[in-house]
Amino acid sequence: MSLMALSLTLVFVAVAVGISMWQRLGMERDIFIGTVRSAVQLLTVGFVLHYIFQSDKPFIVLLILSVMITVATLNAAKRGKGIRGIGLRIGIAITITEFVTIGLLLALRVIPFTSQYIIPISGMTIGNAMVVSSLFLNGMSREAESSAAEVETLLALGATPRQAMHGWLRRSVRASMIPTIDGMKTVGLVQLPGMMTGMIIAGASPLDAVRYQILIMFAFASSAALTSIMLSLMSYRLWFGEKGMLRRSAQK
């Protein structure tokens, strides 16, 4: 794609701005900032990846993965504001998910040990884990607002915090995994995913593109399950005080 052709795609941004002005949504500034940031960030990442793919040094790959995990953790932790220690647990869950997923792909020789494969697939895996973490925390917050009395009753009857929270955790884990599972059910019928589309546009065989997309979808299913389950096991105690009572601050 030429620079001229790329610049013409700003017409889509103009359409969004026009609709915002027409309906008085007041989103023109956000659209402008999002447009500039996405362009700058992607161009920067493009130059960085170009250098990394040429050097292919393991320590640089680890550095990039560390940055990805850190940014994903900080973003997901915003959903758990007021819950002390949630950021650390999100970081641990995302890190374990990333290294288990990539480790299996490398051990099974599904992908070669090169930055050209590891970084893009890691980015998608970490991004998916971040979304799952955010959805899990959203689910826990909703449960705290609607089911606090149920948990307190179970605690009063002698249930342990883990037993009292079982319903919360199960519903929150399910809610965090639903988008990934629904995506698997409709992939190829409702949408052609980005990786598959990008490979086809780049000239790859549709069958090769499909194989890699299947790999990603299966990895997403695994990473969603790992992230949500680990986060539920590590974080449920954060919703209780030292005496085992439900924290009121966690319900806000």
Rank of each mutant, 00 (worst) to 15 (best):
F47E: 09
V48A: 15
L49I: 09
L49K: 09
D56Y: 07
I60L: 11
I60E: 15
V61Y: 06
L63W: 10
L63A: 14
I64M: 13
V67P: 04
T70K: 04
V71T: 00
A72I: 00
T73S: 14
N75T: 02
N75W: 01
A77S: 15
A77M: 02
I83V: 15
R84Y: 09
I86Q: 07
G87L: 04
R89C: 04
G91A: 15
G91F: 13
I92L: 12
A93Q: 07
I94L: 09
I94D: 02
T95M: 02
T97N: 00
T97F: 00
E98C: 01
E98Q: 02
V100T: 12
G103A: 02
G103H: 00
L104E: 01
L104S: 07
L105F: 04
L105E: 01
L106Q: 00
L106G: 00
A107C: 02
R109H: 11
V110I: 15
I111K: 10
I111F: 12
P112T: 11
P112N: 12
S115P: 03
Y117I: 01
I119D: 02
I126M: 03
A129Y: 07
A129E: 10
A129W: 05
A129Q: 09
M130D: 09
S133W: 05
S133G: 09
F136G: 04
S141V: 03
S141K: 15
E143G: 04
E145I: 10
S147H: 15
S147R: 14
S147T: 05
S147P: 01
A148R: 14
A149H: 10
A149F: 04
A149G: 08
E150S: 08
E150L: 06
V151K: 14
V151Q: 11
T153W: 05
L155I: 12
L155V: 09
A156E: 04
A156N: 03
L157M: 13
L157D: 11
G158H: 08
G158T: 07
G158W: 04
Q163G: 08
M165S: 15
M165Q: 10
M165K: 10
H166R: 12
W168L: 06
L169T: 13
R170F: 10
R171W: 08
S172K: 11
S172I: 06
S172C: 11
R174M: 05
A175R: 15
A175V: 08
S176P: 06
S176T: 07
M177A: 15
M177G: 14
I178K: 13
P179R: 08
D182S: 10
D182Q: 10
G183C: 06
K185M: 05
K185T: 07
V187T: 15
